[in-house]
Nucleic acid binder design. Sequence first.
DNA 1: AATGAATGAGGATTCATTCAT
DNA 2: AATGAATGAATCCTCATTCAT
Lengths: 229, 229, 229, 229
Amino acid sequence: MYRSIQSQEWKDDAVADDEAKVKTRRGRADGEISRGRILDAATEIAAERGYEGTSISAVRAKCGLPSSSIYWHFKDKDALLAAVIERSFTTWLSAWELPDEGSPIERAESLAVQTAKAVLDSPDFLRLGLMLALERRPVEPQARARFLEVRDEAQRLFGEGLLSMVPGLSQAQLRELTTYALAGSDGLFIAKEIGGDSVDLVALLTVHARAVIDHAARMLAEGAEDSAS
Amino acid sequence: MYRSIQSQEWKDDAVADDEAKVKTRRGRADGEISRGRILDAATEIAAERGYEGTSISAVRAKCGLPSSSIYWHFKDKDALLAAVIERSFTTWLSAWELPDEGSPIERAESLAVQTAKAVLDSPDFLRLGLMLALERRPVEPQARARFLEVRDEAQRLFGEGLLSMVPGLSQAQLRELTTYALAGSDGLFIAKEIGGDSVDLVALLTVHARAVIDHAARMLAEGAEDSAS
Amino acid sequence: MYRSIQSQEWKDDAVADDEAKVKTRRGRADGEISRGRILDAATEIAAERGYEGTSISAVRAKCGLPSSSIYWHFKDKDALLAAVIERSFTTWLSAWELPDEGSPIERAESLAVQTAKAVLDSPDFLRLGLMLALERRPVEPQARARFLEVRDEAQRLFGEGLLSMVPGLSQAQLRELTTYALAGSDGLFIAKEIGGDSVDLVALLTVHARAVIDHAARMLAEGAEDSAS
Amino acid sequence: MYRSIQSQEWKDDAVADDEAKVKTRRGRADGEISRGRILDAATEIAAERGYEGTSISAVRAKCGLPSSSIYWHFKDKDALLAAVIERSFTTWLSAWELPDEGSPIERAESLAVQTAKAVLDSPDFLRLGLMLALERRPVEPQARARFLEVRDEAQRLFGEGLLSMVPGLSQAQLRELTTYALAGSDGLFIAKEIGGDSVDLVALLTVHARAVIDHAARMLAEGAEDSAS
DNA sequence: AATGAATGAGGATTCATTCAT
DNA sequence: AATGAATGAATCCTCATTCAT
């Protein structure tokens, strides 16, 4: 049944490159594999073009499966993008390792370098996530909600790590500190996206790590003063 | 002919409540007014939904003018969004005033407060701009290019201000410093967008201002060391 | 721009017959005319295939206007079909003339003949309407609601006519009588649809007219008895 | 592998509540049971939405069996709906019992009451059947053909019953009489569907029964006259 | 007897845009 | 300066159906 391949050649135009990669030719293609291919394609496109910009037909062209197969695996576009977030986050998280020795500054710098690496290695997660986070459409997509959830989870985990470096912080202080830390990382990611090679991400994240630690120290000092008076 | 009344009523239904069509009925409607109404609508929608999410017909529905009128005022969607960026930036810039007295820290803190104000007062410019900045579509929209230009311009201006506070910085150092400063502001804007009332933007931007000044001081110190050795 | 005609030739297949009838060639085609052509096509198709069976693309093929033009004139498929009902009813109603002389039986028979004529001349209205009436989908279409409304209006008008023939009926009796009268007409319409030429609609409707009048007489007699006792 | 649980859950979501999947898990599920569940679901949906409105996937969602299983039991959608008609008709027929004593009027009234009961108890058969009967699509579905057949059979049977009450009618007269009788029943069914509780089906069918008997009497009288002259 | 996966065709609807007036 | 009408391409998603297991 090669006509099916032929008959759509024209559809792809600019994206034909990826077409018909793996297809186990008509049948019994393992569902998990297909699901994975769809997610790969969707991740790539969504990270480039955002939620609205990710058309099912672009995903189809990139993964080689017909749109209807995409809908067999995912309820709708929203569910697909939520799954993209889900999977990217898992990958993303696994790239991390909390350093457990060295001075606070050293540890923070290690985290900075890890962040830089994670960001540079797989920028898709953050790029898509931040785009989703910025959107404010009337009916919030599941995908956005899921990103905010996993982001929150990440912030919590990061807070725990920070607490082991700089003990004595209250919950509120920890929240403020991690918010500031993440903000720096988000902002620097954007700067890198805009500035490209002219931005030294490792250096800037290191600067930021120091700023975070400095602020933590200042917080503790103030706290000590308060309780001394 | 009651039908003619009925027949197209539905077109703006969902938004009919919005902005009672001001049209100077039967006289030549003032072009500038129409243009303004279109830009208002487009700004609001684009800041909520990004580039792809901004459909001409959504703009039509919000501003009450027919699509063809939008095309009379703007060449195409891209030009419309570029104009949105343009106008928003002007508004945005006018909110700023470089402080010219006080210690560097004091001046930096004043800037931090101004930034917080600008961000809270008209978040549309940044929200849309950052969405555009994050996108990576094959053919770059004018709107995105324009945002990057005005952002660069802003960064230059900000650099000048910074130099007057902390003289002696090299061009490269200044670039690094302003990149870091802007990154913090971008990241904190996003944190505020996500966290809402639980995020104290003024406080965090103040923290960041101090971090920037600290880093500038450190740079100068290192520079001095270098030239001393 | 003849390519547009060519380029879709294949789409129509079985329905190409009607294509490209009137089109004032690219521009300034009067809106009312187009609207009418769409309604004509939709009426014909809907009367054959019912609500779900009426695809926009079948309407497009029959009226020669692209789907997007159909959506310019009608909000959605539902509104289109509601408009079909609306217009058909107007036509339908105008075919009637209440007889004002002769005995009740004669007048009723005149109405029977008129009904037969209306049904045979333009069966579209009733066929579509009854299909809609029978449907029970979870979210009721506007089109169905509109049919029920106009049907109710018709029943009321018919009741008035009946009252002038057989005065003295109570409102409840009138309602029962018209319900029965309409039911016979609906049922006989269906019988005619099924049986084709083997069903003599005029004869059967005449039989029914007599049955209605007989029942009315019986009602009055009972009423008289009741008040006498 | 928590994902596998998540991944397709949504498929019947909207109806998950419905009919807890009875499947005799892990043992050979009894084919007849599955077939029955499919027919139940299809009957319900088809009676609500008609032929086109009955999608295989709606049936799948309601009966809990995958679409491919539906195709294992039925050749295609058309065969499924024909089977629905078949089964519903059997149920329907079994509800009838020809009265064999009493005056013609009494017997006719007994039939009227039985009809009312049948209609009120299982309206699905008639509702779907009438929808099918009204449709006029280019390629007639088996399901419609089957309905017309069983309806014809029913009309014949009813004719026989009528003949035993009112002997002496010619075949042609019998045909006319049963056509009128059925038309009344169809029409009153529709009236009941539209009017709900405001329509007293038993009363109206009784009125109709009398009308039918009256007409039969008139026919016989005319026939006698004719042959007398 | 049953089902997970796939698939091409077609569904309704919206898109950005144009053009005659 | 503005707009009613139109339009081809694209949108998301559902359709009926098939096939290997």
